[in-house]
Design a protein around this nucleic acid. Structure first.
Length: 602
RNA sequence: GCUGACAUAGCUCAGUUGGCUAGAGCAGUUGAUUUGUAAUCAACAGGCCCGGGGUUCAAAUCCUCGUGUCAGCACCA
């Protein structure tokens, strides 16, 4: 098998370049290794560009990199390119690939390049981003493109690929710029891997929380209600209530007090907090008797008012208020996505008012809290420290101090984190918790935000040891982030097969004949006594049909009852998770369910 | 918000170049059947074809403006 590129000083160098510069190194062969796919996919992007150019001669090209999920190419054409056109482009790609054109490389000076592409504003835009005074051009047959490589030696090596999506993308990723057409694709070294990849995508689609949520009747959306406003159905209501109650206990154990602020507050308050100026475009406003009110996008102001309700001593700190706070935010229509992005959602929000000395221990306590919950659900997550954003209140010094305080707390406890420059809240830096979902996407859920600004703006204080007035520090934090997003992620994580302790229904009871209904009802009542929800499948259907129906609801456990069970006060269990069937006495069965429900505590 | 695609029964989808009373499966209701571990049989019911305007003798189908959904961009819990 011939090499497609080499590895020189830890860099992938294509054969064209290696020959030119006389480099040598370990050979990279055409397989599904990271390095090989990098080259293959990059060249596939070029092949796609070649096909696009031949089908849309007016097309001008911007950039075509490889990304985590394959590759894409951004280009501009006067024609409209829709999903239906992808097949046509793929076909053209294949016909070029069959011609086995060599991919040639040559270098020209930046000035020559600017002259060569003087009518191509996209290429000129690309060149603006390239340092140095020469650029390389890759050429296959008639088609050539400005590119730094690396590329395959020949396009004939490209055989197993698929164009997956077409959409718009802003030039340079900036919404102020014009919009280009972007086509995404994927390529592999062999047919099987491509097939496996497409199957994986289909599998992921099956877990989509919008689909599963509909099938399980967890939630719905309705056009007449409005975009981004979820409607929680009974099954979703039960699941959510279980999560809420577990989390309530967890907060109480850690010294949080439940409080509740109003849904809307006078705009004057939002001006004091800075939300009006810095977050106003995401807020909804209304007026009552000619006074303007803002619907809360966050819960902090309400909690500040709770804090202000009485005087505090340093002995009282830290004070922790929590609330399942319903917030409204104006999201762009295009951003809405099932439960992941909505316009009304409930945060598991809390605010910790503490002294400067307590910051570190409080942050660590919250990080531990987060870890407890994430590990219960077996989620992988990572933490990001986000720094001062463009729109921010407070002085640079305060930002410096608070950002450093966050980093110190993490460093001292050897907690790994990444930095998100400029990603902070307008009032302070934050640590974001990002969960990786079933198909590798990352979602921001929990957040820990350190705030010196709102206490200042609201002139909060407590009495110090010398009976002096000291300004407290506020920590804003959410663990799940929002029930909506978190339940969406949970749904995909478990593919709807929720564990017993949060499942909407714990047990499905299937009586074999009408004569067993009474016993079924008796069991259902006893289950309610131990806080378990059940459903009786006594409809006029065959036994097999009812078992099938019950199974399809993804309930963790089925119990079948007939004459034997009624007689002996037992149940026949069919465990969906372990796929076992066995019999238990009524008492043992109830004990089992109770144990399973109570085995989780945050 | 931007680019592109889409919207027919509770759900998943048919519906020809504009042309008879808009169809199917599942779910639902009713009846028969009373079942021992993944679909018993039959009948019935269910539609402002997303909403407003327009073109036409005639619109689910064409045009237009909204609304909503999907993919991505940009923005974010």
């Amino acid at each position: 098998m011939n090499a497609i590129a080499i590895k020189h000083n830890d860099e992938i160098i294509d054969l064209q370049t290696a020959k030119e510069l006389g480099f040598e190194g370990e050979q990279i062969h055409l397989d599904n290794s990271k390095d090989s796919l990098e080259v293959l996919r990059h060249s596939t992007a070029h092949l796609m560009a070649q096909a696009v150019k031949s089908l849309y001669p007016d097309a001008k090209f911007y950039v075509g990199p490889t990304v985590k999920e394959g590759f894409y190419y951004d280009f501009k054409t006067e024609s409209e390119v829709g999903e239906g056109d992808l097949k046509k482009i793929e076909k053209q790609m294949l016909s070029f690939a069959k011609k086995k054109y060599e991919i040639q490389k040559y270098e020209i000076s930046m000035d020559e390049a600017k002259e060569k592409f003087k009518d191509d504003h996209l290429k000129l835009a690309v060149m603006q981003r390239i340092p140095g005074d020469s650029v390389s051009i890759y050429k296959q047959d008639e088609f050539e493109d400005l590119c730094r490589g690396p590329h395959l030696p020949n396009i004939g090596l490209i055989r197993y690929f698929k164009l997956t999506k077409v959409s718009g993308a802003y030039l340079g990723g900036d919404s102020k710029n014009e919009m280009l057409t972007r086509i995404y694709g994927i390529a592999f070294a062999d047919k099987e891997s491509l097939k496996a990849h497409m199957e994986m995508l289909a599998e992921a689609e099956k877990r989509d929380h919008r689909k599963v949520g509909g099938e399980m009747k967890l939630f719905t959306f309705r056009e007449e209600v409005g975009a981004g406003f979820p409607i929680w159905l009974p099954a979703g209501g039960r699941l959510r209530a279980r999560l809420e109650s577990l989390l309530f206990k967890a907060h109480r154990k850690r010294g949080y007090e439940p409080v509740r602020g109003p849904e809307m507050l006078k705009s004057e308050l939002w001006k004091t907090s800075g939300h009006y100026q810095n977050y106003g475009e995401n807020m909804y406003f209304t007026s009552i008797d000619e006074v303007e009110f803002g619907v809360k996008p966050m819960n902090c102001v309400g909690h500040i008012k709770v804090y202000e309700d009485e005087l505090h001593s340093y002995r009282d700190l830290p004070i922790k208020y929590f609330e399942y706070g319903v917030v409204h935010r104006h999201e762009f229509t295009g951003a809405l996505h099932g439960l992941f992005r909505v316009r009304e959602f409930t945060q598991d929000d809390a605010h910790i008012f503490c002294t400067a000395d307590q910051i570190e221990e409080q942050i660590i306590e919250v990080v531990d809290f987060v870890d407890k919950i994430m590990s219960t659900f077996e989620f992988d997550y990572k933490m990001m420290v986000s720094t001062k954003p463009e729109k921010a209140v407070g002085s640079d010094e305060v930002w410096e101090v608070s950002t450093q305080a966050l980093k110190n707390a993490m460093d001292k406890n050897s907690l790994p984190y990444e930095i998100d420059e400029g990603g902070g809240a307008f009032y302070g830096p934050k640590i974001d918790i990002k969960i990786t979902d079933a198909i590798g996407r990352e979602w921001q859920c929990g957040t820990i935000q350190l705030d010196f600004n709102l206490p200042e703006r609201f002139a909060l204080q407590y009495n110090g040891e010398e009976n002096d007035k000291i300004q407290p520090v506020m920590i804003h934090r959410a663990i799940l982030g929002s029930f909506e997003r978190f339940i969406g992620i949970l749904t995909e994580h478990y593919a709807g097969e929720f564990p017993m302790f949060i499942a909407p229904t714990q047990v499905a009871i299937v009586p074999i004949a009408d004569t067993h209904n009474e016993y079924a009802k008796e069991l259902a009542d006893k289950l309610i006594d131990i806080n378990a929800d059940s459903e009786i499948y006594s409809k006029n259907d065959s036994l097999n049909k009812r078992i099938r129906t019950a199974e399809k609801t993804r309930v963790p456990m089925l119990v079948i009852i007939g004459d034997e069970e009624v007689e002996g006060k037992t149940v026949a269990i069919r465990d969906r998770r372990t796929r076992e069937q066995y019999n238990l006495s009524q008492e043992d069965f109830l004990k089992l369910i109770q144990t399973k429900i109570n085995e989780v505590n945050f």
